[in-house]
Design a protein around this nucleic acid. Structure first.
Length: 779
DNA sequence: TGATGCTGCGTTTTT
DNA sequence: CGCAGCATCA
């Protein structure tokens, strides 16, 4: 390819430049283009500030995606740019997909997809494939997944004669990943860092690993960006062409960018300078995997003359929820600062409920969900967000018992399953004879009698003769080096691959895929497997082949898979959503349950130990992200007792609870009451912790028996900082239909329905409400 | 090569 | 406590 960029230059010519007076002015004069309808002033400003660097600080639920997509539509509609002139980067494929769709609906088929809208990685690959030879790769280089990466790392460590037991490959992989996130090539690794692995050999192992990647014609995820940096730095002409091409640049979730991504953007933005980044420093929750909040905090310094636009009007949550979230996050230092506001109703207060243990916590949440469901809430509009995935188990158990449909979001990924990776390895070998890692993976799967000895012989031959393993296998079937049995097996395998490769252009790729899986004996391997999950694996393989239909050929499919490790969720069923707080970012639900707000779990002890104040602040941002997922209801829980690693531990309510504003929070209590550390357990050195308001608050409500079986919701008066907010009830039987009652918040009313411990009351002023019996008293 | 038992570890995860 | 990964033995 003489000039890889040339072919794209066949875009239609730009329409004449708009006349002075500005697009915005003209647009408004003509009542404005309808894509601006319904945007608020700040949003419109963010859409129309096209020139120079722009930082859009978009708080949760302030219409961030809408601004981004409208801005793109505006660039196109106003004739500022052609689709190919715009670089729009996201982090996840999901975000890219959504943006593409939404731009599509706004601009219609005028945009035949935007070639440069995608994830950092997919755009990185696209650029890299065009100039691969300049960084020592061939344009058809393979992209390694984490699994390949670690296996390769193992080889490198063993080759360096280092004890892999003491210095595990996955640890080195993590370290190298980290360096790559920071934009560091082997030569750039600072001396201090290099000491961190195998007595200071980390740096040279990194270099060796990179060398192996080059001989394999492969790149790992980190390389996709790092090699771009190398390319741009070493070849000013190439960089200049992209700077010229990307006349407008947009970045989503800027607070999640790592150093390498920041450097990449900075190089590209030196051209047009029209870089618009959108993000929220209060939602930065990925510091532990290389994200630098600093990137967003420093934006104005990095890009002089940057315009900063704050989106502070929240369209998602009710007043109480928003106030709670804002008050909480205000405890962080080192933030750019935003004040979220809403013009919607105050809604229900955020509730905080204490439970005796995690089982009771799950039971209470299960009951509340059932109650919501009875009231006609859609289950898919309800979510439970946990800090750590082990918390999910309790809920799953409970929901199974209740027969309540649920789905886990996040979980183990489809493409990470062993059977899928095996199948993909077969396909990779068909497409590329030189994909050694793939070949290695499946050479003896299913078992073909090829053991360590045969594999070692292959490796040795391949290395000394500088040929791929497949080629080595081909040669070694004609020599005496291997025993007859493995030799025959290899001959069959190589012949099979030759045959399949010959069919690559003859047969539809889905058909070929089935043939490969059948003839290789892979399908049969699982059919003969009597273990419980074999059937599921076969089903997954079918699903894999089915998902290939959407692609033109095997190669296109593999490229997609390498970059897109997630699979479209079919989630059409109505089910409660269960996920981690991290997985919830970007989502929203009507009703939200937030269990496990205890010191040690949330904020997580490890975060505190390892990152100190920065760790605490990230945990707090996580709490903020959690709360702001809720549209109408947010219910927080904590358990006094929880079993962690098989041991029971009693816990103190999270400090985050103390950081919630009283006026927007209602404190409740589930069955069973509270741990009593001083008598039941030895509080010991923890006693200083009990000085917190949260603890004192808890103390006032302490009491009630353990295990909470029979006497549910029997309680002492509930107080917040001395103020009585609920009176002791006499249990569910205390009220009768038609009885007049009084509630501190809703005033006087009449009981119309009794459902166990919950009453439906027609309040004189507040209308119909469902309340817990113990929160009302006889009028 | 497969099965069994032992040790160690246990937050969050995209590409 | 429960699981994954590894080592050892048959």
């Amino acid at each position: 390819m003489a000039d890889p960029l040339k072919q794209e230059r066949s875009d239609p010519p730009l329409p004449p430049a708009p006349k002075a007076g500005g697009i915005a002015a003209r647009a408004r004069a003509a009542a404005g283009p309808d894509y601006l309808d319904g945007l608020n002033l700040e949003q419109i400003e963010a859409v129309e500030s096209l020139d120079g660097p722009v930082l859009v600080l978009a708080g949760a639920g302030t219409g961030k995606t809408r601004v981004l997509t409208t801005r793109i539509a505006h660039l196109l509609a106003a004739g500022r740019a052609r689709p190919g002139d715009i670089l729009a980067v996201t982090f996840t494929n999901k975000a890219a997909r959504e943006m593409k769709e939404r731009v599509g609906t706004m601009v219609g088929k005028a945009v035949e997809g935007m070639p440069w809208l995608g994830t950092f990685h997919s755009i990185g690959v696209k650029i890299l494939r065009r100039h691969a030879e300049l960084v020592g790769l061939k344009s058809d280089f393979t992209i390694l997944d984490t699994d390949d990466q670690i296996r390769l790392m193992k080889q490198v460590i063993e080759a360096a004669d280092i004890d892999e037991k003491r210095w595990p490959a996955r640890v080195l992989a993590a370290i190298i990943d980290n360096w790559k996130n920071r934009g560091l090539s082997p030569a750039d690794v600072p001396a201090g860092d290099a000491m961190s692995f195998a007595d200071g050999r980390g740096k040279s192992l990194y270099a060796a690993y990179q060398e192996r990647l080059k001989t394999l014609n492969a790149a790992d995820f980190g390389d996709l960006l790092l090699e771009n940096l190398r390319l741009f730095r070493a070849h000013a002409d190439v960089l200049a062409r992209y700077q010229e091409r990307f006349r407008y640049m947009l970045v989503d979730e800027y607070q999640d960018t790592n150093v390498a991504q920041y450097l990449w953007l900075r190089l590209l933005a030196q051209g047009s300078k029209n870089l618009c980044v959108v993000g929220d420093d209060d939602q930065s929750i990925y510091g532990w995997r290389g994200a630098e909040v600093d990137n967003i905090l420093r934006f104005e310094k990095d890009f002089p003359g940057a315009k900063v636009i704050r989106l502070e009007r929240n369209y998602r949550s009710t007043g109480h929820i928003l106030a709670a979230a804002s008050h909480l996050i205000a405890h962080n230092e080192g933030r750019l600062g935003k004040t979220l506001r809403t013009e919607g109703e105050a809604g229900e207060k955020v509730t905080v409920t204490g439970a005796w243990d995690s089982e009771e916590e799950a039971r209470a949440i299960g009951e509340e969900i059932e109650a919501l469901a009875r009231k006609g809430h859609k289950l898919s509009e309800i979510a439970i967000l946990v800090r750590a995935s082990f918390q999910m188990r309790e809920f799953e158990d409970r929901f199974v018992t209740l027969g309540l449909p649920y789905r886990v979001i996040g979980g183990p990924r489809f493409y990470e399953r062993a059977e899928i990776r095996d199948a993909l390895a077969y396909f990779r070998c068909v497409c590329s004879v030189s994909d050694d890692l793939a070949f290695e993976r499946i050479v003896n799967v299913p078992k073909r009698g090829l053991g360590d000895v045969a594999l070692q012989t292959l490796h040795d031959y391949g290395r000394t003769n500088r040929v791929s393993l497949m080629e080595a296998a081909r040669v070694l079937t004609t020599t005496e080096e291997l025993k007859t049995k493995p030799r025959g097996a290899l001959r069959d395998l190589v012949a099979a691959f030759d045959r399949w490769r010959g069919q690559l252009d003859q047969l539809p790729h889905t058909e070929l895929a089935e043939i490969v899986l059948d003839e290789s004996g892979y399908t049969a391997m699982w059919q003969n497997d009597r273990s419980a999950d074999a059937a599921g694996r076969l089903e997954n393989l079918k699903e894999l082949v089915r998902s290939m239909e959407a692609f033109e050929n095997l190669r296109g499919f593999l490229e997609h898979i390498a970059l897109v490790m997630d699979v479209e969720s079919g989630g059409a069923t109505d089910a409660v959503n269960l996920m981690t707080l991290h997985a919830a970012k970007g989502l929203e639900f009507d009703a939200l349950f937030l269990p496990g707000w205890e010191e040690g779990l949330f904020p997580h002890q490890r975060s505190l130990d390892e990152q100190g104040r920065a760790g605490l602040e990230e945990e707090r941002r996580l709490a903020h992200v959690g709360l702001t997922r809720a549209r109408r209801r947010a219910r927080i829980y904590f358990s006094s007792n929880r079993r962690i690693h098989g041991l029971w531990s009693s816990n103190v309510p999270s400090r985050f609870l103390d950081e919630l504003p009283e006026a927007h929070v209602e404190v409740r209590e589930a069955a069973g009451g509270f741990a009593e550390p001083r008598s039941r357990f030895d509080a010991g050195s923890f006693s200083s912790r009990y000085d917190t308001p949260g603890w004192q608050r808890a103390q006032t409500r302490r009491g009630g028996g353990a295990e909470g079986a029979a006497g549910r919701f029997v309680r002492k008066p509930v107080t917040i900082e001395g103020e009585v907010v609920a009176k002791t009830g006499h249990g569910s039987s205390a009220f009768a239909r038609g009885e007049r009652v009084f509630h501190v918040k809703f005033g006087y009313g009449e009981v119309s329905e009794i459902d166990g411990n919950k009453l439906t009351v027609q309040f004189d002023k507040a209308g119909e409400k469902r309340v817990v019996a113990s929160f009302v008293e006889r009028a």
